Simulated assay, not measured.
Amino acid sequence: MSESDGSSGDESTVTVTVVDGDTTTALTATRGTVLRDLLLDHGLSPYSALTERLNCGGRGLCATCGVRLHDGPEADHWHDRLADRFGYPRLSCQVTIDGDMTVRLVEDKRVWGGRE
């Protein structure tokens, strides 16, 4: 386990555990932060090699920043509700961090990610 930030014990911060293949990283995030922004700020990309540069910039339009949430907030974006229902990755740009969560970056990602 590699630790990027230490937890301050502050109620406005939470821990986001990111699983990327065999690597697990614990990040401290401020409540209200967008998950996509947190990942990119720490050098963890929710994108595939192709969509790293070709994406909508976090507006929820291209569906290329998919991640698997294991204990995150309920889906409230239309795409995330459908993704949750049919087993597709959730859009990290549409997930607002409101508590501790575990996120798995999608391995073998093509453009949108496959069903689970």
Rank of each mutant, 00 (worst) to 15 (best):
L35T: 07
C56N: 06
H70I: 00
R31A: 05
D100H: 11
R110M: 14
H77K: 09
G58Q: 02
S92I: 02
E74P: 09
H42Q: 07
G57E: 03
S48L: 00
S12Q: 15
H79A: 14
W78L: 11
E107K: 05
G58F: 03
L44M: 08
D98N: 12
A63Y: 11
N55D: 03
H70R: 10
S45L: 05
L54W: 10
L50I: 09
A29V: 04
T23P: 06
R31L: 06
T28L: 05
G9K: 11
R81W: 14
R104P: 01
L40A: 06
T25W: 04
T25I: 09
G43K: 07
T23I: 10
T24E: 11
G32C: 07
G32N: 05
D108T: 01
S7W: 08
N55A: 04
V106G: 07
Y47V: 01
L35Y: 01
L27T: 06
L82V: 14
D20V: 12
H77E: 12
D84T: 12
E74W: 10
V18A: 01
T25V: 11
D5F: 12
S8P: 04
I97F: 07
V95R: 01
P46S: 01
V19H: 12
T23E: 10
R104G: 07
L35E: 01
E11G: 06
G87D: 00
G72K: 11
T15W: 04
V103N: 02
T30D: 13
L105P: 03
T51P: 05
W112G: 12
W112Y: 13
S45M: 11
T102E: 09
T102W: 02
M101K: 08
I97N: 01
I97D: 01
R36G: 02
L61H: 10
G113S: 05
A29F: 02
V19G: 02
G32A: 04
D37L: 02
A83R: 04
R36Q: 06
T13M: 06
L27M: 13
H79C: 05
S2T: 13
S4C: 11
R68H: 08
L82S: 13
S7M: 12
V67G: 03
D100F: 09
M101H: 04
V34G: 00
S2L: 15
T33F: 03
G32R: 02
R115F: 06
G58N: 10
S7V: 12
V106E: 05
C62E: 02
P89K: 06
T23R: 09
C56Q: 03
E107F: 03
S7P: 11
C93Y: 00
T17F: 08
T96P: 14
P73D: 11
T23N: 13
L40F: 07
G99E: 11
V14S: 07
T15V: 12
V16E: 03
R90P: 04
T51E: 00
R115S: 07
G57Q: 06
L69C: 03
H77M: 01
R36P: 05
G66K: 01
L61F: 10
R31C: 01
G43L: 05
R59K: 15
D37N: 15
V106C: 10
M101W: 07
T13F: 07
V14M: 14
T96H: 09
M1N: 06
A49N: 08
V16S: 05
V18M: 06
G57C: 04
T23H: 13
R59S: 15
R90L: 15
D98Y: 08
E3D: 06
V95G: 12
G99T: 07
D37M: 04
T30N: 14
Y47I: 04
E116T: 10
D10S: 14
